[in-house]
C-alpha cells in the first residue's frame, strides 16, 4: 500500500503577471519505507509539491487535487488535525538551514520545543531527549551546543540540527527539500551519509527534492522527473538513469555526462505562459508536429508522444 499518494495536484497562484501554474496535475506515490527523489531544474515546481503535502503553501495559493496519507486526505483535514500530522508523521527539512532556524532562540530549545508541544513532556525531559537527538545527528559536544544560538553553528551543523528536529518524532515520511544545496561539497557528502543512515535505521520513507542527479542516484529507490509543473517520467532510479525515455531526462543526464557539461538549450518556461501541447517541445531536439498541439499522457512511466505508440 502506498504511504503517500498524490493525485491530480494543481497549485495555482494568481499574480499581477497572470496565473502561475506551479503544479499542473501532479501524480506521485511513495511506498512505506521507500525513498523517492523528485528531480528537475530550479523553478519547475518541486518545492511547491513538498509544501503542498505539508499544507504550508502561502495563503494566496489555490490548491486542488487529493493527497492521501495513511488513509487520510490531507487537503481536507482541519487545521488542528493537520498540525498534529506536521512534525509527527510528516517532517520536513529545507535548503539554506541558516535561515530556517530562529536566530533568537538557542538551537537546543528549538529541538526540544516540538517535544514539549507534541508529547507534553517536561522541560528537563525534553532537554535530555534533545541532547540524545543531537548526539544521533553527530553534533559534537551536544551539552555545550544545546545552549548555543544558530549563528554559532556552521552550515553543516545547522542542517544537522534541522535533521534532529525533523526526526524527533520518528516520522513516517521525511521530506527533504534540497538539503545539501548551499553547503560545501565535503559537508554535502557528510549530510548525505547521515540522512541515508538515519532513514534506513528508522525505516522512514523519504521524499528527496534535488537537482543533483548524483545525490538522487546515491540515495533513492525511485525517481520522478518534474518539468514545468508536471511529472514527465518516473520509475526505478536504476532503470530511469540507465535507460532514460523522456528527452528531458536524457538531456538532464547528458548535461553531467563524462564528456563535459552539455547545457540544455533554452530555459524553463515562465509558469504564467506555458507552451501548448508538450511543455518541453520548444527545447526538445526530437520535436514533431503532434508535440506542439496535444499534451501527451503519462503512459508506462513517461509523458511523451514519441513513446505513446510503442
Amino acid at each position: 500500500m502506498d504511504l503517500l499518494q498524490i493525485s491530480n495536484l494543481y497549485v495555482n497562484f494568481t499574480t499581477k503577471a497572470g496565473v502561475v501554474r506551479a503544479s499542473d496535475g501532479v501524480n506521485l506515490e511513495i511506498k512505506q519505507g521507500e525513498s523517492l527523489c523528485l528531480v528537475g531544474e530550479s523553478g519547475c515546481g518541486k518545492t511547491i509539491v513538498a509544501l503542498g503535502i505539508m499544507r504550508l503553501l502561502p495563503q494566496n495559493a489555490q490548491i486542488s487535487g487529493k493527497i492521501w496519507f495513511k488513509g487520510k486526505e490531507l487537503l481536507s483535514l482541519g487545521k488542528e488535525e493537520m498540525r498534529r500530522i506536521r512534525g509527527r508523521e510528516i517532517a520536513m527539512i529545507f535548503e539554506q538551514p541558516a535561515t530556517c532556524l530562529d536566530p533568537v532562540f538557542t538551537v537546543g530549545d528549538q529541538i526540544a520545543e516540538a517535544m514539549r508541544v507534541h508529547e507534553r513532556c517536561s522541560g528537563k525531559e525534553s532537554k535530555e531527549k534533545a541532547i540524545d537527538l543531537m548526539e544521533m545527528v553527530e553534533i559534537p559536544s551536544p551539552q555545550k551546543r544545546f545552549k548555543q544560538y544558530p549563528h554559532e553553528f556552521s552550515g553543516g551543523m545547522q542542517q544537522r540540527a534541522m535533521i534532529a528536529i525533523a526526526l524527533s518524532y520518528n516520522p513516517s515520511l521525511l521530506i527533504a527539500d534540497e538539503p545539501m544545496t548551499f553547503l560545501d561539497v565535503t559537508i554535502q557528502a557528510q549530510i548525505m551519509e547521515l540522512l541515508k543512515d538515519l532513514v534506513s535505521k528508522f525505516r522512514t520513507s523519504l521524499l528527496l527534492i534535488t537537482h543533483d542527479l548524483g545525490v538522487a542516484a546515491e540515495m533513492c529507490d525511485g525517481v520522478a522527473v518534474m518539468y514545468a509543473g508536471e511529472i514527465v517520467e518516473k520509475g526505478r532510479v536504476s532503470e530511469v538513469f540507465k535507460y532514460p525515455k523522456h528527452p528531458y531526462t536524457k538531456a538532464l543526464l547528458g548535461a553531467i555526462s563524462n564528456d563535459g557539461l552539455k547545457p540544455i538549450k533554452g530555459s524553463v518556461p515562465e509558469l504564467t505562459s506555458l507552451p501548448s501541447g508538450c511543455k518541453f517541445h520548444p527545447r526538445c531536439p526530437l520535436v514533431r508536429d503532434v508535440c506542439r498541439e496535444a499534451r501527451p499522457e503519462m503512459k508506462n512511466g513517461v509523458r511523451c508522444h514519441l513513446w505513446e505508440k510503442s
Binding site: 498540525r83 506536521r86 512534525g87 535561515t99 508541544v117
Partner: peptide, 20 residues
Amino acid sequence: NYIRTARAKGLAEKLVIGKH
C-alpha cells in the same frame, strides 16, 4: 524561513506567532 520551520514542526499558530 524559520517561521515556516516552526509551522513544519507542528507548533500551534499561537506559539508560532507569540514566541518565534
